[in-house]
Simulated scan of single mutants.
Amino acid sequence: MFTGLVQAVGRVERRGVQLLVTGCAPFAPLQLGDSVAVDGVCLTVAECVGDGFLADVSEETLARTTLGVKASRRGAVNLEPALRLADRLGGHLVGGHIDGAGTVMAVEALSQSWRLELRWNDPSYGRYVCEKGSIAVDGISLTVAGCSDDGSRFWIAVIPHTWESTSLHHLVVGASVNLEADVIARYAERLLLQAQPGASAHQAKPDVEITSDWLNAHGWG
């Protein structure tokens, strides 16, 4: 698990069938088998190399995330080592398992912050987005400032420290980002759907409309 608090900005590039991630000195030393979030993607250290590591990646990871494209141009990536039980949870619980890609719709510099507007490429994930909720963007724990009715488009107020100490300042309109929804929202949805009378433990009911009346009738009021 991770917290979404970036500890370094490094680079990623292809090394044969593996990815080489550099720039891990701020949280070194790494050991074989350690987990590191790279732009929000949980990668396992297969070999330590200088101030970074080599990692094996599956076709699924390359297809679902931006790492393949970034590696082709030695792009900047946000880095965070795995959470230790004694660490402070300064962000939110981030699994390092990307749900899908998003697209930058607007980047606006304000007097004391930046307004970043994004959209899910798959709008169905918008159901996990709500105002003041948490979302991980390229591995960064951020708070949703507002969103469309279906949550597929949302915007974030980014403070100067986050803007300057992560890769966010590289973003431009049209850029792709890795998005991970709040895991608590995902589990809450599944528990609510499973609470229907007669539903089996392995059978979800995505066609149910969860309303305040439904919640009250099923003991969630």
Rank of each mutant, 00 (worst) to 15 (best):
M1W: 04
T3F: 13
G4P: 03
A8C: 06
V9N: 05
V9M: 07
R15L: 11
R15F: 08
G16E: 05
V17H: 15
Q18C: 10
L20W: 13
V21W: 06
G23H: 01
C24V: 01
P26G: 07
F27I: 05
F27H: 04
A28K: 02
P29M: 10
Q31A: 14
L32V: 13
L32H: 15
L32Q: 15
D34E: 08
S35M: 02
S35N: 03
S35V: 01
V36K: 06
A37D: 10
V38L: 05
D39H: 07
V41A: 15
V41R: 11
L43V: 00
T44A: 08
V45M: 06
E47A: 14
C48W: 00
C48S: 06
D51N: 05
G52R: 08
L54E: 10
E59R: 11
L62Q: 11
T65S: 12
T66V: 08
G68I: 08
G68E: 14
V69I: 10
S72L: 12
S72W: 06
S72H: 07
R73L: 10
R74H: 09
G75C: 03
A76K: 13
V77R: 07
N78C: 05
E80M: 02
L83W: 09
A86Q: 11
D87Q: 01
R88P: 00
L93N: 02
G95W: 06
G96H: 03
V104T: 04
V107I: 11
E108H: 13
A109M: 06
L110D: 14
W114F: 13
W114R: 13
L116I: 08
E117L: 02
E117H: 04
L118S: 12
D122I: 02
S124Y: 14
Y125A: 03
Y125K: 06
G126E: 05
R127Q: 15
R127W: 04
Y128V: 00
C130T: 10
C130V: 14
C130G: 04
E131A: 10
E131M: 09
I135P: 09
A136K: 07
V137G: 07
V137L: 13
D138G: 04
G139S: 09
G139Q: 08
S141A: 11
L142E: 05
T143R: 09
A145Q: 08
A145W: 03
G146R: 12
G146D: 15
C147V: 00
S148Q: 09
S148L: 09
D149F: 06
G151T: 08
R153Y: 02
R153K: 10
F154K: 06
I156E: 12
I156S: 11
I156V: 15
I159G: 03
P160Y: 07
H161R: 10
W163D: 10
S165N: 07
T166V: 04
T166N: 06
H169G: 01
H170L: 14
H170E: 14
V172I: 01
G174N: 10
N178Q: 02
L179S: 07
L179I: 06
L179C: 05
D182F: 06
I184F: 15
Y187C: 03
Y187H: 14
A188T: 13
R190Y: 07
R190L: 02
L191R: 08
L192P: 02
L192H: 01
L192S: 01
Q194K: 15
Q194P: 01
Q194D: 04
A195Y: 00
A195H: 07
P197S: 11
S200K: 14
A201G: 01
H202F: 15
P206H: 09
T211K: 03
D213F: 12
N216G: 04
A217K: 03
H218A: 05
W220T: 00
G221S: 04
